[in-house]
Design a protein around this nucleic acid. Structure first.
Lengths: 213, 213
DNA sequence: GTCTATAAGAAGATAGAC
DNA sequence: GTCTATCTTCTTATAGAC
């Protein structure tokens, strides 16, 4: 899917779009083919069967998720550098952090389609559920907890224990997650959701920020 | 579905179970029939077609949701009575409130299956998305906001404005929602999630409770 | 209301020409 | 690698006996 000029990648791309809108079972191979501009039987020169297309999408997904996690780790492993980076954390920086996370998940085309597809297909198979769990729950919570842990050690946020930090991460991320699912369901709610997101983060900062206590 | 002795209601019940596990398109009428203990053609004496079974479930759903909303309104309309009820609100009462909400959504068999079915089918049709939005986002948030508004007027919780109350409701409910979707995806995470829920509510109380400030 | 038999059609997949 | 023609299977739904 990296190169949308190759037919194989265009198949994956169109299939992902359709799967994310209608679910795997409601998409017919002829539909995918039509969007690519070929006939159904030609698909079988690129993929063994319909299932293989789905698995091709999962493979691409895994590849991109790993790249993404790698990026997080690079910034996350060097605690000293990170503390330095976040030392200047104020309300507007926190707001930007949350909004960026939200908008990346919401607007990145690949992210959006994969998330919707996994939402539909998550109950088919434990592996899909695990991918969803990791990507949209555990990884963001762990990342936020790591960051807030450093911020609280640096005296910027107020937390008395490791557990408080992990709850703090949930308090920061759960509203982002909720608003994300709201916008996936109804894109017209995006503007209202962005306002709610901002109100959430400002109040989060008021509740947890050292300067306010 | 009220009377599970009638074949018609047993069809709705088994269909809901299957739709919530595999999605509408992956369930065959013969499968539903087999669970009820009849053959596929016999189904058509009770429902015009497969779609009518799905719509029968939606009708039952709407009926139960309305009953449920009625119950909330009864307690919600009389503000004086509610303030009196919540005046003794302390951390343990708040904890029970949140846990009850969580466990009702999670364990009530009808709720659980309907929520999973709507999760799978939400992108098929704007009406299904709207039902989901109302039942699992807007209604709980409005209810919590109403309650926290009263509690803050009564001086039990700390909020300076209407908007703060609505953010407070999101801070209370969003983690509940997130943990709910986690448990739907993987029931083995229920025990851990209940612990996280408790930690969340205690910290919420610490952040927003008047007594702590 | 339930059954068996069967029609009708949809959808995945293959064969083989170009 | 793409096409047309076709096969096969699966699934919904109907007909008509009991």
């Amino acid at each position: 899917m990296a190169d949308l000029n190759s037919t194989k990648d265009r198949i994956l791309d169109e299939a992902l779009t359709l799967f994310s809108e209608k679910g795997y079972a409601n998409v017919y191979v002829g539909e995918i083919a039509a969007r690519v501009g070929i006939k159904a039987p030609s698909l079988y020169k690129h993929f063994r069967n319909k299932r293989a297309i789905f698995e091709g999408i999962l493979a691409e997904m895994e590849k991109r998720f790993l790249e993404q996690a790698g990026m997080l780790n690079i910034s996350g492993n060097d605690a000293t550098a990170d503390v330095a980076r976040y030392e200047v954390m104020d309300e507007d920086t926190l707001l930007k952090l949350g909004t960026d996370l939200f908008l990346f998940f919401l607007h990145d085309d690949f992210q959006r389609r994969v998330r919707k597809m996994l939402t539909i297909e998550q109950f088919q198979d434990a592996e899909l559920a695990a991918v969803y769990q990791d990507q949209y729950v555990d990884a963001p919570l762990n990342y936020q907890a790591m960051m807030f842990g450093m911020l609280s050690k640096a005296g910027i946020l107020k937390a008395d224990s490791e557990e408080e930090v992990s709850v703090m991460a949930m308090h920061f991320y759960a509203p982002i997650y909720l608003l994300l699912t709201v916008c996936d369901r109804d894109p017209y709610r995006e503007i209202v959701s962005l306002k709610k997101l901002e109100a959430h983060i400002r109040q989060f900062n008021k509740l947890y920020g050292r300067t306010m206590r």
